[in-house]
Amino acid sequence: MSKQLERWGFVLLATLVALIFTSFVLVLAGASPVAAYWYILKGSLGSWTKISDVMVAWVPLLLATAGLLVTFAAGQWNIGVEGQIVLGAIFTTWVMRSLQHTNTPAAIVLILAFIAGAFGGAIWSAFAGILKVYGGVNEIFGGLGLDFVAVALILWLIFGPWKRPGIGSMSGTEPFPHRLWLPTIHGTRLSLWALAIGLVSIGVVYFLLTGTYFGLKLKAVGRNPKAAYLMGIPTTKYLMGAFIISGIFAGLAGAVQVTAVYHRLIPAISSGYGWLGLMVSMLINFQAAWAAPVTFFFAALNIGSIQLPIMLKLDSSLSGVLQGALVLSFLLLEGARRRWVKRREEAKNE
């Protein structure tokens, strides 16, 4: 039997395990698993509008994952990605608000807004990097702390300086004028520009990590910083570089959310895409080649599960259960597979 076939067998098995687990949860909740999966499928791929909605969710998830793959290559757990998305959104909103009532052409405003978003994500990520590289603060703690600060910042802006005329509310800031909305395909919420940014980004990251000296050195730093330093690689620069690049992509995700999806700043602007990106990265074993299809699948689950409260009176967080179950069963079965392969090879030699 070919090894390829065996690998796919395991993928199938892991998916099955996750489905069985989720079905069990559904039965406990008193719902029919078959119906739930059917509605998720129909709600995500049932029509062109639905597919375009999936793509709308796909883009920020793809961007967050692209960024995370860079920090993972450098051996860093960039938990601060959520905060970086938020800061990207804040910086984007700031540029949009400053320029929305001027005569600046919409294209220029949007370009500046995206640059600002990337910049915002990058500096927030750089903070985590500085804490780690120069302060010795584990990036997980630093990033988590910065996530909380980012949430506090966005709430303060929405209910304070940037509140709607009258009273601030959870529905966010005043929407931007229509001319500053990133153009979408007619009749859908999908912007081809945003889609292009997402796809180009993952392509860039794939190329960076697999084809360039930069990516190779980043991997060396991630796996053995001491040896990398002795080989002449400036390790602190590369670590900082990884954080900044990762932050740029997270910031772009925030910019997309503001300019193409919500057209304003809302408290939940990151929509948890950062956390989801971390899950995807683990699921694909940090291989950039798999990022696009798997993020698409996760986005489809998110969109499809919106049907659940409507049709089955279930909470839409069920998609999260399925996603989490998938990641865990993959990790579990991958560990089991390695042991199995090892044992089989030993047995073969006897």
Binding site: L216, K219, A220, R223, N224, K226, A227, A228, L230
Partner: peptide
């Protein structure tokens, strides 16, 4: 393995 080479590469 600790300082000279990079495991995994």
């Amino acid at each position: 393995m600790k300082e000279g080479l990079v495991p995994g590469l």
